[in-house]
Design a binder for these strands. Sequence first.
DNA 1: GTCTATACACTGATAGAC
DNA 2: GTCTATCAGTGTATAGAC
Lengths: 204, 204
Amino acid sequence: MTSSATTRERILGAAEKLFARRGFDGASLRQLTAAAGVNLAAVNYHFGSKERLVEEVFRRRLDRLNTQRLAALDRAKAHGEASLEQVLDAFIRPALEIDGHGDGSLFVRVLARAFAEHDDSLRRFLSENYGHVMRRFATELARLLPHLSREELYWRIDLMTGALTHAMSGFGMIRRREGVGEAEHREETIAHLVRFAAAGLRAP
Amino acid sequence: MTSSATTRERILGAAEKLFARRGFDGASLRQLTAAAGVNLAAVNYHFGSKERLVEEVFRRRLDRLNTQRLAALDRAKAHGEASLEQVLDAFIRPALEIDGHGDGSLFVRVLARAFAEHDDSLRRFLSENYGHVMRRFATELARLLPHLSREELYWRIDLMTGALTHAMSGFGMIRRREGVGEAEHREETIAHLVRFAAAGLRAP
DNA sequence: GTCTATACACTGATAGAC
DNA sequence: GTCTATCAGTGTATAGAC
């Protein structure tokens, strides 16, 4: 249990980095275990399969992301009702503020890619870990947009999610203009996303 | 040239079906060539690599899709200026109306998946084949939304594209409600997409 | 030109020795 | 827990048949 924990962590660290840089299929277990300095078979011993390793990499980050999103929502509602823009900010900001060990923005890309992929098992896993957060925000949005039917609302949320996912997957890449710092770039991105999503959701 | 054409076509047909059902990495060349009734090596002979085969599958459809989108835009402008909703309809409708040989909706999923993936070489290919269409629509949108800066407009178009891509990737899947026909479902989808995108683009 | 058989270097997974 | 050896499966390349 003592040495196994460090092996596990070494694998997870190397996996996150390599998955972000080369994609899930692009990063092989042999590259990954070599980078982590562990034996190839250790992955299957500790995680059972490559797919389960992918899920574990996500779980570490998603647990924290979900917590931060809900906390941000609570904070927005602390002093009375939250505006639509505040709710959207609470949803978007934590995702763009993820920063692991300098590779945070890379992880955002992986997260977005995973969400965009329609791999059934991975989607199921994400919906299990994401589900309650999405439902919480959906409830909040339903309150703020009473003119929308339930069906219409779900459509809008789905479209909004698509836009955000798409934007997030590009965040941290080429898009950053020259001479613009990381923090400033992030604020710009958040502002654009919130403005677009709010307008789309408010449509008659 | 005579028999090679049928072999080429058989590979392309089987590829489109299998890529749609199992993804690019999920469908192996051995499954694919077995389904097409051709030899494994025929893929490399006719296309050079699996990646190039993927591109060819797209090119067949995209050429037609691009033409239809531009034609729809011209039609919308035939009797004077086109509204924002008409421009968006011209962009969205042809994508959802693709119908190859009964597997049209499957191809939409593949197209959306490809667009969502940030594989560099595939993206470059898509932008080369899609580029001029996107620029044409961007010009049209710039005319209809003069209050937006160029930078703001590109942001909005990117977000809109993300939303549409995400929605398209789900089109033809589980989402169709019971008792709703294909045509009716498509009209509903188009209406939702146009409404959301128009509102997002019009945001102040 | 078109097609095929075959081999090569990879992949993820697993059984079994230590 | 860890490691070696080995498995079936993958994309790719090529020599040679027609």
